[in-house]
Design a protein around this nucleic acid. Sequence first.
RNA 1: CGGGGCGUAGCUCAGCCUGGUAGAGUGCCUGCUUUGGGAGCAGGAAGCCGGAGGUUCGAAUCCUCUCGCCCCGACCA
Length: 439
Amino acid sequence: MRLTGYFMPTLKETPSEAQIVSHRLMLRAGMIRQASAGIYSWLPLGVRVLKNIERIVREEQDLAGAQEVLMPTIQAADLWQKSGRYDAYGPEMLRITDRHGREMLYGPTNEELITDIFQHSVKSYRDVPKMLYHIQWKFRDEVRPRFGIMRGREFLMKDNYSFDLDFAGAKKSYNKMFVSYLRTFARLGLKAIPMAAESGPIGGDLSHEFIILADTGESAVYCHRDFIDFDVLGQTIDYDGDLEPIVNHWTKLYARTDDMHDPAAFDKQVPADKQISNRGIEVGHIFYFGTKYSEPLGAVVSSAEGQPVPVHMGSYGIGVSRLAGAIIEASHDENGIIWPESVAPFHVGLINLKASDAACAKVCDDLYGKLRAAGVEVLYDDRDERPGTKFASMDLIGLPWQLVVGPRGVDKGVVELKRRRSGEREEISADAAMARLTA
RNA sequence: CGGGGCGUAGCUCAGCCUGGUAGAGUGCCUGCUUUGGGAGCAGGAAGCCGGAGGUUCGAAUCCUCUCGCCCCGACCA
């Protein structure tokens, strides 16, 4: 993409409404634009990031055996009346009346709808287990939206719902999602730590929040330092096999959010030099809730003995749009965003330091063509701007690599390859740079 | 929902107290100079001063109402 033709309205100054770093940087980088309180439009650069996050989430859901569906944003109120949540949900739920006076709502979540879909078609124990997920916009009328995209009223979320015959089955589904989440966040370049969370009236330990550590996080979290070095991507996962050992490995050490924190247990279980107490951002939440919705909504299957049994369910959420902000919170410096490779809107930024110089332009155009031909996503700054402006905006938008071509280097037959994350630069030939970027 | 604050040019803000018909920086457009970390000079375009009432000869400025947005707290993916 040539920057001269790209819609990327960057800002030199920080808009006054933005307080936290991800919000400021997303606005400055031209990723989003506020439409109203807690509601945002996504501009081209932001959409590219969002799509990358979505892609990874989707791939990992599919890998774990879940199937994608797509449920509507607007739902009829009657299912919610059946589950009892229409009254329980309160003003956070945006209620709408259609032209016929029918009560509708903009979905804040989808348990009712998915359970209804399931119960219409599934009647036998032979048809479970099933895991169905979708990635859809949701709306929660937060009293006080804030932190930009991190806590908007409208947000993009992946939610998955599992259906099993009994608790043992549900636990297997839970484990699949647990491991799937570890992989998903790791691929997004994040250190996400599963922390014991409130599981509501069901009780037990089957609820985990996946938290990333960031100083600007919204809640206090406490955990063992060894989590930082845990790795999940180095092993092959067999989702049909026993996942319990992996789950155990990731849950045996102390990790709790503020509301579950027990200072005495923390001190007892974690040596002082291994204690981390920090702020954290919740990027995912998984829980088992048994028959809470299957009973009132009639999601019942026949057991092998011919007896009707309500299915055991779990639900598993990932805040897709929130992740865009969370990744920035976890990965930036004073100059701007530092995207992990997997979600970067482009792989490399090609900077022509002197657009008016024919030799420079020749080298750049050539590199641009070759990179594109090689399938490398490249943003080519071909603007007639000063070098400082170009460096600043490229650092701001945080592409993993910068390929800098200036008259000085072109004379010597070299270009400069800069790593955004470390700031390392090296002068190498254009061919060598190509080889590096296509490796 | 309790408490606080802010709406003036795309962005950051001054002007408001003490009423006299719109400002700066930056960004944008033109030209010249410049060219390795958000340049310099000159010229230019750009605002229903959030909206509605009111007071006044006259309102960005004073009064009332209203809408929007932000911050702290409680709450939340």
